[in-house]
């Protein structure tokens, strides 16, 4: 009984983490750089939902596309400030610029909204769904559904459209993509927009049950980083798998052991994985090039 509820909660949390991690991988593939502000983008998405809900009394489902649009635009602006001026530099420079962006976002939110936790509206109404003896939070189910739709939409976009092919070509070999006429800069900006959109969606979804505060995004980046490493650096499917694994430890393992033991176990698994399978769960075998 309880095991099923824990599983649903774990999958919902994992789905939200997966959105964050997917955005992280998109930028990583397009630019080779680590976006350390990805967690704070989640926080920004949460506040976008809170603010929109304050002025537009419509259901959460209607707000969602608005939040997505807003965060997409924000992603483009973000890339113009924190990535394009640094594109010719080593990846560590972008690492720092995104850290700086994160500091700006956190403290900007603290100034604008204060430090009180805020709650975003539920997607399909709050409360719980009773299926016989099972008690399932509606929002958890909504998170799973939205994340699945967004994940599939992204898969379709990348695999089935001309835009997606151009995006993938850019990720694989920028010079080659440029040579065959892909507008590489636009593709990179689009990757940032997609990444912040996914983060924004996660922020909206998480801010209902778990609330949003100016610092609530900062721990997500570590989780995204770990998810992506577990899954295989650069692998989209791996990122989802890694995110689910983290949530399973956080919600599942910690129901048996203590939280500390669950987290320690997660790091132990992580280290073992790096030792045994340095390429991640789903990742090409790293091969030295001659």
């Amino acid at each position: 009984m309880l095991a099923l509820q824990l599983l649903v909660n774990a999958v919902a949390l994992g789905a939200a983490y997966a959105l964050v991690a997917l955005g992280f991988v998109l930028v990583l593939n397009a630019t080779g750089a680590v976006n350390f502000a990805q967690g704070d983008m989640v926080m920004a998405g949460g506040y976008a939902a809170v603010v929109l809900a304050g002025s537009l009394p419509v259901p959460g489902l209607v707000l969602l596309p608005l939040v997505l649009l807003l965060t997409a635009a924000f992603g483009v602006v973000f890339s113009l400030i924190a990535y394009f001026p640094l594109r010719a530099r080593p990846p560590a420079a972008v690492f720092i610029s995104t850290i700086a962006t994160g500091i700006i976002l956190q403290n900007g939110a603290n100034l604008l909204f204060g430090a009180e936790p805020r709650a975003a509206p539920a997607l399909l109404g709050g409360g719980i769904l009773r299926l016989g003896a099972f008690v399932l939070p509606r929002q958890s189910l909504a998170i799973i559904a939205v994340a699945a739709v967004l994940g599939l939409a992204q898969h379709w976009l990348l695999r089935r459209t001309q835009f997606g092919r151009a995006l993938r070509a850019t990720a694989q070999d920028r010079e080659m993509a440029r040579a065959v006429g892909v507008r590489v800069d636009r593709m990179i900006a689009a990757s940032f927009a997609l990444a912040t959109t996914l983060a924004g969606a996660a922020g909206f979804l998480l801010a209902n049950q778990f609330f949003v505060t100016p610092t609530s995004g900062s721990d997500l980046i570590l989780k995204a980083y770990i998810a992506v490493t577990i899954g295989g650096w650069g692998s989209l499917a791996g990122a989802v798998l890694g995110a689910m694994l983290i949530a399973l430890f956080e919600v599942g393992v910690s129901a048996v052991l203590s939280y500390e033991a669950a987290m320690a176990a997660l790091y132990a698994v992580l280290l073992a994985l790096l030792w045994l399978r340095p390429q991640g769960l789903i990742g090409e075998a790293a091969r030295a090039r001659a």
Binding site: N9, A10, G252, Y259, E260
Partner: peptide, 13 residues
């Protein structure tokens, strides 16, 4: 039991 500040879901505890 103690719970980390980063932990989201409290159903386990």
């Amino acid at each position: 039991e103690t719970v980390d500040v980063e932990v989201k879901d409290l159903l386990p505890v």
